[in-house]
């Protein structure tokens, strides 16, 4: 058994009395690529935000690299190697591509390393390289998504959390984004992606979790889930 990098134990998230996540267990092993799929409002984004430290949760319900991190502030988690690509991208639209990437390295002090990673990200996304001086707000949706991912990579994460990377993008662009996510995983970054596009997510990842009204209803090998009747009916439209 490989060591678990991220471990959720009975994770609960509430918004003033309404429980969005009702106690879920989830494990992401080092080097794995895991997706969390489900319909709108199932609680996927809440779970991801909770992991990233953007929502208050119980201390022991989230463990990262063996340590309880539940409820720790986001800025501390970034330093520990946990990076979130927020829903709707959230690039700094009035800053240039380069400035956005620099912002991603905010918590790092190793200048040489940052410069090397900056170049690596631009190599990974040739589109961004062409537009590195352009304002982020003037990029297309797909390019903004790439920038958001690149910015997250500049914090040198061990675990990359992606929230709906396909949101509002053309199918061809989505396919490209997932290709890159696969590439990032191959380079050794562990990935947890929340996605509504179940087919693409399951095809790209090793492991999948299915979430329904705040609970995990199914999980297992991604290929197996692709073949599962219930999943095919509910999420693959077959």
């Amino acid at each position: 058994m490989t060591a678990a990098l991220l471990e959720l134990q009975r994770l609960e998230v509430s918004y003033g009395g309404i429980r969005a996540v009702k106690g879920i267990d989830l494990t992401v092993a080092d080097g794995e690529m895991v997706c969390l799929i489900g319909a709108n409002g199932a609680g996927k984004t809440s779970a991801l935000k909770a992991i990233a430290g953007l929502l208050p949760v119980a201390r022991d319900s989230v463990r990262f690299a063996g340590e309880p991190i539940g409820g720790r502030p986001a800025f501390e988690l970034v330093r520990r190697g946990l990076a979130l690509v927020p829903e709707g991208r959230g690039v700094f639209s009035q800053l240039s591509v380069d400035e956005n990437l620099a912002m991603g390295a905010y918590s790092r002090r190793d200048r040489a390393g940052v410069r090397a990673d900056h170049e690596r990200v631009l190599a990974l996304f040739p589109r961004l390289k062409e537009r590195h001086r352009q304002l982020a707000g003037t990029l297309s949706g797909g390019e903004q998504q790439m920038l958001a991912i690149g910015r997250a990579l500049l914090s040198k994460p061990r675990l990359l959390l992606l929230d709906e990377p396909s949101m509002g993008l053309a199918p061809r662009v989505v396919a490209r984004i997932f290709e890159v996510i696969g590439e990032i995983a191959r380079q050794g970054v562990t990935v947890l992606v929340v996605e509504q596009n179940a087919r693409l997510a399951l095809e790209t990842c090793n492991k999948g979790y299915v979430m329904e009204s705040g609970l995990i209803t199914l999980f297992g090998d991604a290929r197996a889930l692709l073949g599962n009747d219930a999943v095919r009916k509910a999420y693959l439209g077959e």
Binding site: V78, P86, F92, A152
Partner: peptide, 10 residues
């Protein structure tokens, strides 16, 4: 510019 993004970058 964006408070959530600011928190997300640390």
């Amino acid at each position: 510019e964006d408070e959530v993004a600011a928190r997300a970058v640390g």
